[in-house]
Simulated assay, not measured.
Amino acid sequence: MVSQIADGHYKYQVPIDAYGNGGFRFQDMSHIGSLLCLPSGMHKWAITNAKQLDELDFTQIFERSDEIDVFLIGTGKDIAFIDESIREKFREHAIILEPMSTGAAVRTYNVLMAEKRAVSAGFIAIERAE
Protein backbone atom coordinates (compact mmCIF):
# COMPACT_ATOMS: atom_id res chain seq x y z
CA MET A 1 0.00 0.00 0.00
CA VAL A 2 1.31 3.44 -0.93
CA SER A 3 0.94 6.12 1.75
CA GLN A 4 0.56 9.83 1.04
CA ILE A 5 2.66 12.67 2.38
CA ALA A 6 0.43 14.51 4.83
CA ASP A 7 2.23 17.84 5.22
CA GLY A 8 3.70 18.14 1.71
CA HIS A 9 7.27 17.49 2.87
CA TYR A 10 9.44 14.39 3.06
CA LYS A 11 12.72 15.15 4.85
CA TYR A 12 15.07 13.29 2.49
CA GLN A 13 15.97 13.87 -1.15
CA VAL A 14 15.30 10.60 -2.96
CA PRO A 15 14.84 9.26 -6.52
CA ILE A 16 11.42 9.29 -8.16
CA ASP A 17 9.87 5.83 -8.65
CA ALA A 18 6.98 6.89 -10.92
CA TYR A 19 5.21 9.95 -12.28
CA GLY A 20 1.90 10.65 -13.99
CA ASN A 21 -1.75 10.71 -12.89
CA GLY A 22 -1.14 14.23 -11.60
CA GLY A 23 1.65 13.34 -9.19
CA PHE A 24 4.73 11.34 -8.23
CA ARG A 25 5.70 8.26 -6.25
CA PHE A 26 8.86 7.83 -4.18
CA GLN A 27 9.84 5.86 -1.06
CA ASP A 28 6.51 3.94 -1.08
CA MET A 29 4.61 7.23 -0.87
CA SER A 30 2.58 9.21 -3.34
CA HIS A 31 2.38 12.94 -3.82
CA ILE A 32 -0.38 14.61 -5.85
CA GLY A 33 0.67 17.85 -7.54
CA SER A 34 3.99 19.36 -8.53
CA LEU A 35 7.14 18.52 -6.60
CA LEU A 36 10.31 20.36 -5.56
CA CYS A 37 13.31 18.11 -4.78
CA LEU A 38 15.95 19.85 -2.66
CA PRO A 39 18.81 18.83 -0.37
CA SER A 40 16.33 19.44 2.49
CA GLY A 41 13.92 16.87 1.04
CA MET A 42 10.89 16.57 -1.18
CA HIS A 43 8.43 19.47 -1.00
CA LYS A 44 5.06 20.22 -2.53
CA TRP A 45 5.34 22.93 -5.19
CA ALA A 46 2.34 25.11 -6.00
CA ILE A 47 3.19 25.36 -9.71
CA THR A 48 0.76 23.89 -12.24
CA ASN A 49 1.97 25.56 -15.42
CA ALA A 50 5.42 26.70 -16.57
CA LYS A 51 3.94 29.98 -17.81
CA GLN A 52 3.22 31.05 -14.22
CA LEU A 53 6.85 30.71 -13.04
CA ASP A 54 8.58 33.74 -11.57
CA GLU A 55 11.74 34.31 -9.52
CA LEU A 56 9.91 33.84 -6.20
CA ASP A 57 9.12 30.23 -7.12
CA PHE A 58 12.85 29.49 -6.89
CA THR A 59 13.62 31.17 -3.54
CA GLN A 60 14.34 27.85 -1.80
CA ILE A 61 16.80 26.92 -4.54
CA PHE A 62 18.68 30.21 -4.33
CA GLU A 63 18.83 29.93 -0.51
CA ARG A 64 20.65 26.61 -0.94
CA SER A 65 22.84 27.57 -3.90
CA ASP A 66 25.98 26.35 -2.10
CA GLU A 67 24.47 22.80 -2.10
CA ILE A 68 23.17 22.74 -5.69
CA ASP A 69 25.14 22.54 -8.94
CA VAL A 70 22.30 21.67 -11.31
CA PHE A 71 18.58 22.42 -11.15
CA LEU A 72 16.37 20.44 -13.51
CA ILE A 73 12.92 21.81 -14.22
CA GLY A 74 10.28 19.51 -15.63
CA THR A 75 7.99 21.95 -17.40
CA GLY A 76 5.10 19.56 -18.04
CA LYS A 77 4.36 17.48 -21.10
CA ASP A 78 6.49 19.71 -23.34
CA ILE A 79 9.58 21.84 -22.90
CA ALA A 80 8.67 25.42 -22.00
CA PHE A 81 10.60 28.65 -22.29
CA ILE A 82 12.04 29.95 -19.01
CA ASP A 83 12.09 33.73 -18.74
CA GLU A 84 15.52 35.34 -19.16
CA SER A 85 15.26 37.10 -15.77
CA ILE A 86 14.92 33.70 -14.08
CA ARG A 87 17.82 32.28 -16.12
CA GLU A 88 19.97 35.26 -15.08
CA LYS A 89 19.15 34.68 -11.40
CA PHE A 90 20.34 31.07 -11.72
CA ARG A 91 23.59 32.29 -13.33
CA GLU A 92 24.09 34.77 -10.46
CA HIS A 93 23.87 31.84 -8.03
CA ALA A 94 26.17 29.64 -10.17
CA ILE A 95 23.47 26.98 -10.67
CA ILE A 96 23.02 25.33 -14.05
CA LEU A 97 19.34 25.50 -15.08
CA GLU A 98 18.11 22.72 -17.38
CA PRO A 99 14.47 22.94 -18.51
CA MET A 100 12.97 19.85 -20.17
CA SER A 101 9.73 17.90 -20.21
CA THR A 102 8.76 16.43 -16.84
CA GLY A 103 9.43 12.87 -18.00
CA ALA A 104 12.93 13.71 -19.24
CA ALA A 105 13.62 15.71 -16.08
CA VAL A 106 12.59 12.82 -13.81
CA ARG A 107 14.81 10.37 -15.70
CA THR A 108 17.79 12.76 -15.69
CA TYR A 109 17.28 13.57 -12.00
CA ASN A 110 17.35 9.87 -11.10
CA VAL A 111 20.59 9.32 -13.04
CA LEU A 112 22.29 12.33 -11.42
CA MET A 113 21.07 11.26 -7.98
CA ALA A 114 22.55 7.78 -8.58
CA GLU A 115 25.83 9.48 -9.48
CA LYS A 116 25.65 11.41 -6.19
CA ARG A 117 25.70 14.76 -8.01
CA ALA A 118 24.52 17.99 -6.37
CA VAL A 119 21.22 18.01 -8.26
CA SER A 120 17.84 19.44 -7.36
CA ALA A 121 14.68 19.58 -9.41
CA GLY A 122 11.23 21.04 -9.80
CA PHE A 123 8.68 18.83 -11.53
CA ILE A 124 5.35 20.10 -12.83
CA ALA A 125 2.88 17.24 -12.48
CA ILE A 126 1.41 15.69 -15.61
CA GLU A 127 -1.46 13.29 -16.19
CA ARG A 128 0.18 10.80 -18.53
CA ALA A 129 3.68 9.41 -18.16
CA GLU A 130 5.79 9.53 -21.32
Rank of each mutant, 00 (worst) to 15 (best):
I5F: 03
A6V: 15
D7H: 14
D7A: 11
G8Y: 12
Y10C: 05
Y10G: 11
Y12E: 11
Q13L: 14
D17H: 07
Y19Q: 01
G20H: 12
N21A: 13
G22K: 08
F24M: 01
F24V: 04
F26Y: 15
Q27Y: 05
D28W: 08
S30V: 12
I32T: 15
G33L: 08
G33V: 13
G33H: 09
L36F: 06
C37Q: 12
L38Q: 04
M42A: 03
H43M: 05
K44D: 11
K44T: 10
W45I: 03
A46G: 14
I47S: 08
T48Q: 05
N49T: 10
K51Q: 06
D54S: 03
D54M: 01
D54A: 00
E55K: 11
L56S: 11
F58G: 03
T59C: 04
Q60G: 00
Q60W: 06
Q60K: 13
F62H: 04
R64G: 03
S65L: 01
S65F: 04
D66G: 00
I68T: 13
I68P: 09
D69W: 15
V70E: 06
G74C: 08
K77F: 04
K77C: 05
D78Y: 13
D78S: 12
D83P: 04
D83R: 15
E84A: 14
S85W: 00
I86P: 01
I86H: 00
E88M: 05
H93I: 05
I96P: 02
E98L: 06
M100P: 03
S101V: 05
T102S: 03
T102P: 04
G103F: 04
G103N: 15
A105K: 12
T108H: 05
V111H: 10
A114L: 15
E115C: 09
E115N: 10
K116P: 01
V119Y: 03
V119I: 12
S120I: 01
S120Y: 07
A125W: 03
E127G: 07
E127V: 02
R128E: 11
A129M: 14
A129D: 07
E130W: 02
